[in-house]
Amino acid sequence: MSVSVASLGPMTGGELIVRTARAEDIRGLVASSTRLFAEDGGTRDASMNVDWPREHGAASFAAALEDPARLVLAAECDGQVVGHLMGSVSGPTDKRLVISATLISLYVRPEHRRARAGARLVGEFLDWARREGAEHAEVTAYSANADAIRFYERNGFGAMTLTLRQSL
């Protein structure tokens, strides 16, 4: 994978780098995932365990870094992880006849979003998915998260399924 670099300008300083994550990034990846859970799932889904990243994130990221069917990317600025993406490929199976890529997790700190870090992370994920032979990529977003839905649509995703839930 190539490293993607962009200057952030005077507001944030430094350059934002998108690269494959390494074991030494795990602490920053967990912090990024913790922010994602608090900002997204924690505000939209009362059943979400917002402590999951702190409790299980390090082991999850460590396993993903060792798994050839997973991709973990870090967005870095001034030596600090300011965002991440985790994705996977699977298949084909008897049920789904093609290789499919799933964008599992994506987060960029708000102060770094103007550098198009999210779009760059998604672009690297899609390039990786193509190299892995995936015929399509998918991502799940909360229906109440209009900003995320617009972001994914701007990056080429479109609605295919709808999950409906009833509280019991």
Rank of each mutant, 00 (worst) to 15 (best):
V3T: 14
A6H: 03
A6F: 03
S7C: 07
S7A: 13
G9P: 03
G9A: 02
T12K: 14
G14H: 04
A21N: 11
A23M: 03
R27T: 05
G28T: 08
G28N: 11
G28M: 06
V30Y: 00
S32H: 04
S33K: 03
T34R: 01
A38R: 13
A46I: 04
P53N: 05
R54V: 09
E55W: 00
G57E: 08
S60G: 15
V72C: 11
E76T: 06
C77G: 08
D78R: 15
G79Y: 06
Q80K: 15
V81N: 09
M86P: 09
G87R: 10
T93C: 11
T93V: 10
K95V: 14
L97E: 03
L97N: 01
L103P: 08
L103T: 01
I104A: 14
A115S: 11
A115K: 07
A117S: 05
A119K: 13
V122F: 08
E124H: 13
F125E: 01
F125T: 00
R131W: 07
G133R: 12
T140Q: 14
Y142Q: 02
Y142H: 06
A144E: 03
A144L: 04
A146D: 12
A146M: 05
A148H: 01
R154S: 04
G156P: 12
F157W: 01
T161Y: 05
R165Y: 06
